[in-house]
Design a protein around this nucleic acid. Structure first.
Lengths: 359, 359
DNA sequence: TTGTACGCGTTATCAA
DNA sequence: TTGATAACGCGTACAA
C-alpha cells in the first residue's frame, strides 16, 4: 500500500516482488495473458492494483518494442488557425476515422517553422510516433525537413512530393475547367482572382510576376495554375486577370482586396476566390459596395465549407475526409511511397449567375 | 554512409564511434550544447547527418527523463463525432493554443468505452503523456477509470469531479435564468425540452422519471437541472414540461421529437433545446408543420455554434476555447486539483419572440 | 572539456 | 508454465 523507494511509482519489479515471481512473468501477465495459469495471472493483477501499478510504462514499452502505436499529424500554421479551417478539420476527421478502432493514437503536431534560437533548431521532430502525415506544409518548411530525416514512413497531403514518402493530392483541374466553362457560358469575360497567401510573410496586395515566382505554398500555386489553364482554354487572356493576395486575416483582407478589384475601370463580373472564406469576404465587399450577388457580381469559391452551402456559394468541393483516410491507409501499407489522386467537384450554386446586361 | 549492423538505424553510439568520442559527448552535443567546444560539436553534428542520425530517440528520451513532452486529450464518443462537434473543437482549439509555443505535443485519444474483448480490457491508457485532459466523458466511462489509475495529472472538463483531478466547468445557471425570465416576459407559459441523450443506449422518445434517474451524462443532467430550476423560479410547473430525448441522429431525432411535442393538445410556444443542433432540428420540424419561427413558435438552443448566429437562433453561449485553455493551464500548475468555473451567457436572437396572440 | 558506468522499465530469447 | 539474462537508446552522476 505504501509507495516504494523515494516516491517513484510501482513498476513490474515491485509487483513481481510482492507476488514472489519474476518480473518477466508479470510482464507476461499484461502482454501475453495466454502464457500464464489463470490463477497466477489473477494474483498478479490483484497485486498490481494494490500497488497502484497502472500497467506497462508506455515509454519503456515503446523503447523496447520499437514502436509507439501513434502516428503524427503535422498541420501547417499554428493550431488555432488550422483547427478553425474546415479543410484541415476534414483531414483530421478522416485520419481519425481511419485509426479509431486500431488502438493507434493521433499526435497533433504544430509545424513550428520559426524555432526559438539555434539551440532548438537542431532538435528534430521530438515525438514518439511510428509514422507521420504532413498536411499542406510550405515546401521550405523546417518541419518537412525534420520529418524526412527520421526513418519512419511519411505521407504528405496537398504539398510537393517528398522522396520516399506517400503522396495524396486532389486534382482540381477537371472541376475548375467545368467551373470555367460554366462561367464562360454565362457570359463572364472580366475575371479577377482572390488568392490565399503565397509566402510565409503575409503580404497583402496585388500579385506581380516576381511575387508569383517567390511563392512557397504549392497548393495555392496549383489552384492558381488550374484556374489559369482553365481560363486560357475558354479563351481568356490570363494577363488580364489580376490576382489579389490576402495575408493573415482572410475575410478582412479578402474584403479589402475585392473592393480594390471591383474599383478597377473594367470591373470584373466574376470573382474567383481560392478559398471559401475569401469568397465570403468578397461577398461582404460586394454588399458594402451596393452590388448584389449574383445580379451584379458572381463569385466562385474553393473548398465547400459548410457556410458555402448555407449561403449558396458556388465552389470547388474537396474530398477533405477522404484525403485523411487515404493518407492513413497509405501510411499503414508496406511501401508507403504510393500515390493517391482524388478528384474535386464543381458545385454550382446561386452565387454564380449570368453577366449583368449592362456590362 | 552505409547502415550499421542488421538494418538498424544509427544511434548515439554509432555517431560517437565515427567521430571517435564517447556517446556521452554526442548526447551533450544535442542536449547540452554549451558543454562542448564549438568545433567538436560541429564535427559531431556533421557526422550525425552523414549517418542519417535524426537526433535522440524520443522513446528512450522519455524513458530516461521521465516525461514525454506531450499531453493527452480524451474526447467522448468516437473521433468523427467529436471532430464534428463545434463545442469539442472549441476545447481542442483552446488546448492547442495553450501549448502551441511550449513544444508540447497534443495526443488525441478516443475514449474507447467498449473494449474489444477481455484481453484488451486490462490494457490501460496506452499513451506516453505527462498529463491528460478528459472532456465530457460519461461518468461510468472506462476511459476515466483507466486514466485515473495512472499517476499523472488529470483535468476534467464538463464532467463529474474526479478525486485528485483538476476541474473545469461552465455554470450555465445564471444565463439560463436570464433566458427563462426573458421567455416568461414574452408570455411563454407552455414549454417543452428537447434533450441530448441521457444514457449510452441511444434511446429516442419521451423521458419519464425512471429514465431521468438512469441518466449517465452529467452535462445533460446539469442543463436539464438548470432549466428546471429557472422555469420553476419564473412560476412554471416543471411537471408540465415534457422532455424528449434524442438518440444518435441529432437533427433528425430532434425534428421527430419536435413534431411529437408540437402535436400535443397544449402546444408549446417555446421549445428549449439542450444543444443548438437539436434546436436546428426543431426549427426544421416547425417549418415542415407550417409553423413560423418565432411568430408561431420560439426556440432557444445551447452552445452557440456558428450556424446559430447565422440563423438567428437564441442560445446559451459557452466559453468553449476558454475551457480548453483553463484546463491546459490547470494541468501545468503545481497542484492541478484546483477548480475553475466559467460563465455561460444568454444570447438573445430572433428565434425568441412574443407568444402568438391566439395562444 | 570529455569519458566511465549505471539504470530508466520493459520485452525477447532461451533455458529450465 | 516460469525465470534468468540481455538488450532497447539514452541521460547523468561522478571521475579524470
Amino acid at each position: 500500500m505504501e509507495d516504494e523507494r523515494r516516491g517513484r511509482y510501482a513498476t513490474l519489479k515491485d509487483v513481481a516482488r510482492l507476488v514472489g515471481v519474476s518480473h518477466t512473468t508479470v510482464s507476461n501477465a499484461f502482454s501475453q495473458p495466454d502464457r500464464l495459469s489463470v490463477d497466477l495471472r489473477t494474483r498478479i493483477l490483484t497485486a498490481a492494483r494494490e500497488l497502484g501499478y497502472a500497467g506497462p510504462n508506455p515509454a519503456a514499452q515503446s523503447l523496447r518494442r520499437g514502436r509507439a502505436d501513434a502516428v503524427g499529424l503535422v498541420l501547417s500554421h499554428d493550431f488555432p488557425f488550422a483547427l478553425s479551417d474546415p479543410a484541415a478539420l476534414g483531414v483530421l476527421r478522416g485520419v481519425g476515422m481511419a485509426y479509431r478502432d486500431q488502438h493507434i493514437n493521433l499526435l497533433l503536431i504544430a509545424s513550428h517553422d520559426k524555432e526559438a534560437g539555434v539551440a532548438r533548431a537542431i532538435i528534430p521532430n521530438h515525438a514518439a510516433v511510428d509514422g507521420m502525415i504532413l498536411y499542406s506544409l510550405a515546401h521550405n518548411s523546417g518541419a518537412v525537413a525534420r520529418a524526412a530525416r527520421r526513418h519512419i514512413p511519411i505521407v504528405v497531403i496537398d504539398q510537393p512530393r517528398l522522396e520516399g514518402a506517400g503522396f495524396v493530392w486532389v486534382d482540381s483541374r477537371a472541376a475548375v475547367m467545368r467551373a470555367a466553362e460554366r462561367g464562360h457560358a454565362l457570359g463572364h469575360r472580366r475575371v479577377a482572382i482572390l488568392s490565399l497567401k503565397l509566402c510565409a510573410d503575409s503580404r497583402t496586395g496585388l500579385v506581380d510576376a516576381g511575387r508569383r515566382a517567390a511563392a512557397h505554398y504549392p497548393m495555392v500555386m496549383e489552384r492558381i495554375g488550374a484556374w489559369h489553364d482553365a481560363l486560357a482554354r475558354v479563351g481568356l487572356d490570363i494577363d488580364d486577370v489580376p490576382i489579389w493576395e490576402c495575408g493573415e486575416a482572410l475575410e478582412t483582407d479578402a474584403c479589402r482586396g475585392a473592393a480594390v478589384l471591383l474599383a478597377q475601370e473594367r470591373r470584373p463580373t466574376l470573382l474567383i476566390a481560392l478559398s471559401d472564406r475569401l469568397a465570403l469576404g468578397a461577398i461582404r465587399a460586394a454588399r458594402e459596395l451596393g452590388l448584389s450577388v449574383p445580379r451584379d457580381l458572381s463569385v466562385i469559391g474553393f473548398d465547400d465549407i459548410p457556410e458555402a452551402c448555407q449561403l449558396g456559394l458556388a465552389t470547388i468541393w474537396q474530398p477533405h475526409e477522404a484525403k485523411g483516410e487515404e493518407a492513413a491507409r497509405l501510411l499503414g501499407e508496406e511501401n508507403s511511397q504510393r500515390e493517391v489522386t482524388l478528384e474535386a467537384t464543381f458545385v454550382e450554386r446561386e452565387s454564380l449567375g449570368e453577366v449583368p446586361a449592362q456590362a
